[in-house]
Design a protein around this nucleic acid. Sequence first.
DNA 1: TCCGGAAATT
DNA 2: AATTTCCGGA
Length: 201
Amino acid sequence: MGSISPSYWSRAVVFPDWAYKPAWSPGSRQVQLWHFLLELLGHGQSGAIGWGGEWGEFVIRDPERLARLWGERKGKPHMNYDKLSRALRYYYNKRILHKTKGKRFTYKFNFSKLILVNYPAFPPCHVAPQTHTLQGQLPYLSGPLPPGTSQSGLVGPVTTSLPLAPALNGWPTDTGRSLSSYHTSPRMAAEEGEAKKRDGK
DNA sequence: TCCGGAAATT
DNA sequence: AATTTCCGGA
């Protein structure tokens, strides 16, 4: 209960400008689905999606509406939840999302990877921050820094090496890798080896 | 509903 | 590369 409410910190989520530039503009990328989700989650007005019980967990309350909104953003008028959810499932391998099994329309962000990277001291993290250095082009946080956070405003793509806090809540199949062996470069470590193509296939 | 392969699209 | 589209299967 003494923790910071999701609505507080999610409101501070801001995306770098490249996330909004048109794809054809040099050095820019299209907004990605998880950007969009955090955006809606942060403003929390859509009603199509909302935070769930656990930290990072969210529930899609109106799947088809969410799909419609996503379709509008991407210029895909025929978007639907079936297709959107396929995109979400692609995030499993990338370690961006995880499905909360048993709970309908419920997924969970791997914030230990997405947020802590650029905002080390934010979520209640009682573990001593280790010193892995990451330089990301990930969404970063701006706005009010929580008391005790000494570092600068973190505005703009983070170019400063920041202490990275260790993973918090367990990631089911984190292959013992968690946050201890990141050789993270610009983008998320997601690219590393496109960890798919299991031998069984 | 949810999953993940495959191919197509941008 | 990140989806979008389509779909058979659990």
